[in-house]
Computed example of a mutant assay.
Amino acid sequence: MWSTTDIAMMSRAIMLARRGRYTTRPNPNVGCVIIDSHGAIVGEGWHQRAGGPHAEVHAWRMAGDKARGATAYVTLEPCSHYGRTPPCAKGLIEHGLQRVVIAMTDPNPQVAGRGIFMLQDAGIEVVSGLMADEARQLNPGFLSRMERGRPYVTLKLAASLDGKTALANGESKWITGPAARQDVQRLRALNCAVITGIETVLADDPSMNVRYQELGYLQQQLGEDELIQPLRVVLDSACRMPLNARLLQLSGAVLLVSCQPYPAEFCEALPAHVQCVQLPGIDGRVDLAALLQYLGKSCNSVLVEAGATLSGAFVSCGLADQLILYQAPKILGAAGRNLLQLPPYQQLSQIPALQLIEQRKVGVDNRLTLKIGY
């Protein structure tokens, strides 16, 4: 069904789409390639920033008059509604495209096949499904938000070879090497939000932001003014957040989540970039499902950087989708602190299923990416 040209052009569109992965949220990453009747590329582009032109717009602007009678390859169904930009399906029609090849339909209820119908209704040949799996991998967070109403959840963990995160006395700086810590900064930059717990704040006083000077090679691709800081979320069920916490002093949005109202005087003393929200609790702790539903209004993907209790709770509740583990070539001993606090499983059939997706060296450490099944 698919020609070698079809596969080559969609592969290029997917490659282009990846260029926007640090700057498009909460929009999806999308790439587009336009070829003429001879198979030559006459236009291409990718969605570069939310609120800016979509991938198709960049491609047809580059193609100009050569777009008429041409074929477009798009990694996601062209939009059919007016948002911050006009519908791309309408633009493809107006620029005289003859054929549009789509990797996957858009699960956004505002689109959901309407873009395809609009193109077909205008007499354009539309085929879809080419490299659909690869296209889905471009946008796990966007798809999760559209299909499940919650963000895609990644747990970031760092441990020794014997599965410990710190010595018994709590000392943990630094288990991993500088290359792994740089990689974590890039991981934060990929996510809409970073979640931690109040115990981590009280113990470590973290900043939780992306430090541009520590992005390493990514600085060559991403200007400091292009960096989108993630929302920093602190689960503070009993309202124990100190006003002098470092993360409150740094610019960038912060969300404090509790199960009870914060005192009025505390809220009045907070900087303008800090917001408080009260969500339902379970046994005195924030209901994680309610939290993800709340964040799903605007966040595609979230990164959990927390201690064993909160990280384990995401797994126990079946709410963690992916685990990224930085494993250091160190042994901390039996008395060290454990990686995750999980229930006392009685049978192997009860434990979460882990699928290794990627394993690579990051400096002296190993980085393992695992999907979590329940």
Rank of each mutant, 00 (worst) to 15 (best):
I357R: 15
L247S: 00
G281E: 02
G318T: 06
V111D: 11
L231M: 07
Q229I: 05
A353W: 14
Q219A: 11
Q359L: 15
N29T: 10
G163Q: 06
Q350T: 05
L342G: 02
D287G: 00
L76S: 03
V233P: 04
Q275I: 07
M15S: 14
I228T: 11
G223P: 08
M62S: 10
G149T: 05
M131F: 12
E44I: 02
D225S: 13
A193C: 07
R21S: 09
Q346T: 12
P280W: 11
V277H: 09
L138Q: 01
V274E: 00
V194K: 02
L248T: 01
D321C: 13
I102E: 04
L222Y: 06
Q293G: 11
L288Y: 01
Q249V: 01
R136S: 12
M1S: 15
H54T: 03
R61G: 10
T5W: 14
K66D: 12
V362R: 05
P280T: 08
G43F: 03
T154G: 01
L76C: 07
P178N: 03
L130W: 08
K330L: 14
L368W: 13
I372F: 09
S80H: 05
S11G: 15
C79I: 10
G284Y: 09
I357K: 15
P230V: 01
L332I: 03
I124N: 04
R360F: 10
I175F: 06
P178L: 02
A158M: 09
V210G: 02
D283E: 15
L340H: 06
A13R: 01
R360P: 08
G115V: 03
R49A: 14
F314D: 00
G115S: 08
I195G: 04
Q213D: 15
L323M: 14
A308H: 09
Q346M: 12
K371Q: 13
V127I: 13
V257N: 01
E147L: 15
A320L: 04
R181P: 03
G197F: 00
Q278N: 11
I14C: 07
Y262S: 01
I7E: 13
Y212V: 01
P343Y: 06
D121Y: 12
H58M: 09
E147N: 11
A168L: 10
Q249A: 05
I41K: 02
T176E: 07
R84Y: 13
K371A: 15
D225T: 13
G252M: 05
D225Y: 15
H273A: 01
Q293R: 11
A272Y: 09
M62N: 07
T23Q: 04
G177K: 03
D204L: 04
L97W: 09
P26W: 05
V126L: 07
H95G: 08
D365T: 05
N366P: 08
L332R: 00
Q182D: 07
P230I: 01
P344I: 02
L235G: 00
Y262W: 08
F142P: 00
P242R: 00
V30S: 03
E56I: 06
R12T: 11
P230R: 03
M104I: 11
W2R: 09
M10Q: 06
Q322L: 14
Q229Y: 11
R285N: 12
V257P: 02
A272K: 07
I351P: 07
L303S: 02
Y82H: 12
C299F: 08
Y82L: 13
T5A: 15
L323W: 10
G39Y: 09
R12Y: 12
I228E: 10
P271L: 02
H81K: 11
C276E: 04
L340E: 01
R18I: 06
G45S: 04
G296P: 09
F117C: 15
D121S: 13
